[in-house]
């Protein structure tokens, strides 16, 4: 059992949990993910690690309530325990001194971009961050991101906070004004797709973290397979980060809809109960 030691409401339908997981906290690196299962009847869901504290043995996850499992988790509180918490899985982000880097976090993707931005900054890179959400009530961690970035832009689709734009608008302006060595993007697939489209003409290496459907997360099932160039790869063991210019984002989006009907049914049943 893995105990929730702190819970925080970060934004609308977005919650943070600090989970006691000593072994994972000892090992994990930015960019890696965990798989959790709430109870005996639960499904296994992957979540990218949002933060970690090696001394206290704590892993931070940020969860957006979208389906049955995430809503159920949202109802849990400090002191409750998760049945299974497995990791760290996947390959860590490449953290090196690249030069000038843009970190793009969209929606709940702001959470996992944070430890990557921090590590890149600590390595001596100049980190320019862009965080965006549909609306003000979905934004979080602006201060945290500012603390690990040399520059920070904030956008909302509806203009309720920061600049009224999608993340690719400030991204393009920065790319036009200075030479960038690398872009890292985490967010909804459609955002990552357009980040990749935006950076392609500038020939800037762009990395995206894919949030595919997974079961085991250790390479056994192939549910998370994605197309990278002409090759089929598994997000769980070959990723989750890939060269965004090679990723078939349309396939990723299509595969994420595999169980849409079932997800609706499960959520309805949960909310009705």
């Amino acid at each position: 059992m893995f105990k929730i030691i702190r819970k925080e409401n970060l934004a609308e339908n977005t919650k943070l949990f600090d989970i006691e997981a000593k072994l994972i906290a000892k090992k994990c690196l930015p960019g890696q993910f965990v798989i959790l299962r709430l109870d005996e009847k639960g499904e296994r869901i992957p979540l990218t690690i949002a933060d970690f504290d090696r001394n206290r043995g704590v892993i931070t996850i940020v969860v957006q309530e979208v389906g049955k499992t995430t809503f159920q988790l949202g109802e849990m509180k400090a002191g409750d325990s998760l049945l299974d918490f497995i990791g760290p899985l996947g390959n860590p982000s490449e953290i090196e001194k690249f030069g000038k880097i843009i970190c793009v976090g969209g929606g709940v993707g702001i959470a996992p971009i944070y430890p990557i931005a921090r590590a890149l900054k600590e390595k001596g890179n100049r980190v320019i961050s862009i965080i965006g959400a549909r609306s003000k009530n979905l934004l979080f961690w602006e201060e945290k991101m500012r603390n690990v970035s040399d520059e920070l832009s904030v956008t909302t689709d509806d203009g309720s906070y920061g600049r009224k734009a999608v993340v690719t608008a400030p991204l393009k302006e920065i790319l036009d004004s200075e030479k960038i060595d690398r872009v890292v993007a985490i967010g909804p697939p459609v955002m990552m797709k357009f980040v990749a489209k935006t950076t392609l003409p500038y020939k800037v290496k762009t990395v995206a973290s894919l949030n595919s459907v997974m079961v085991d997360g250790t390479g056994m099932c192939g549910a998370c397979r994605c197309k990278i160039g002409e090759e089929t790869r598994f997000a769980c063991v070959d990723g989750p980060e890939f060269d965004a210019h090679m990723v078939d984002f349309d396939l990723l989006m299509s595969r994420q809809k595999m169980y849409l009907d079932e997800e609706k049914k499960a959520l309805k049943r949960f909310k009705g109960a």
Binding site: K41, M220, C221, G222, K227
Partner: peptide
């Protein structure tokens, strides 16, 4: 081969056996 509805036998059987998908929605895995 990457279309929705194409499973590896491993995934199909893991969902059903390990995750009890044959008892969805009582069990969460579809």
């Amino acid at each position: 081969e990457n279309l929705n509805g194409v499973y590896s036998a491993n995934e199909f059987l893991t969902r059903v056996n390990l995750m009890n998908a044959y008892r969805f929605p009582e069990y969460d895995t579809p």
